[in-house]
Amino acid sequence: MNNSLIIGQYVPGTSIVHRLDPRTKITIIFFYVFIVFFANNLPSYGILILFALASTFISRVPIRFIMKGLTPVWFLIIFTFILHLFVTKEGTVIFDFWIFKFYSGGVIQGIAISIRFFLLILVTSLLTLTTTPIEITDAIEDMLRPLNKVKFPVHELALMMSISLRFIPTLMQETDKISRAQASRGVDFRTGPVKERIKAIVPLLVPLFVSAFKRAEELAMAMEARGYQGGHGRSKLRELKIEKIDILVYFVFLAVITVLLLTRTYG
């Protein structure tokens, strides 16, 4: 019940990937997403795949968790592959069927795009699998700090994110409780015509909103009572620190980029 709720998809661990500064992870993923589009031949794809698989291996996140994260995108990957088969008209015809002609270029393009897709998903899910939501929030707050200069409410945004994350399990429990109570009063959420089922949501949503407002009000009061008056003059318990290992990882990644740029085909 209580302890079964997982926030995000974080898988606790102590691997190097887990221990990296979240800013390091976000930065690397950001650039990785870029350079994926630079790869255009076997060796350049090879180095990208090697980096992604090695990171996955080092993180020791069980494969089934990664596969679970990929389930919703399998369809997309296959769809783009097929799309390329149909629309790309380069290379030699390798298969001829009725009005369709499949070209070798289409197959290659399809595979390449699918690999890119797969790598992007793999690497980003590796971030959420090895980093707690609160660490991600901290990193975002820190990385957006320069925006403070243009009066962008960075601290408020980060606080809102972390409070929302904190209340997800609470509101999930609440939803469950209210839907049980209404089901006991004869509401049928599962069967019946669509129109009826949409109507059945009202008795669930109204109490949920009422309670969320009440919680927000009480929380605001509790925060005020504890001396909260905005981000100004606050100190922070959570401290992000770049360690040796982060620098090492940056260098490794730089090496990956270099190899990629050297091996890709130009012109």
């Binding site: 609440e174 409780k177 209210i178 049980r180 109570a181 209404q182 006991s184 009063r185 009202v202 008795p203 109204v206 109490p207 009422v210 309670s211």
Partner: peptide, 14 residues
């Protein structure tokens, strides 16, 4: 046939 008064039942009003 089985009525249930849950904890804090006022939370179910809408």
């Amino acid at each position: 046939k089985v009525g249930v008064v849950f904890q804090y039942p006022e939370h179910q009003l809408f």
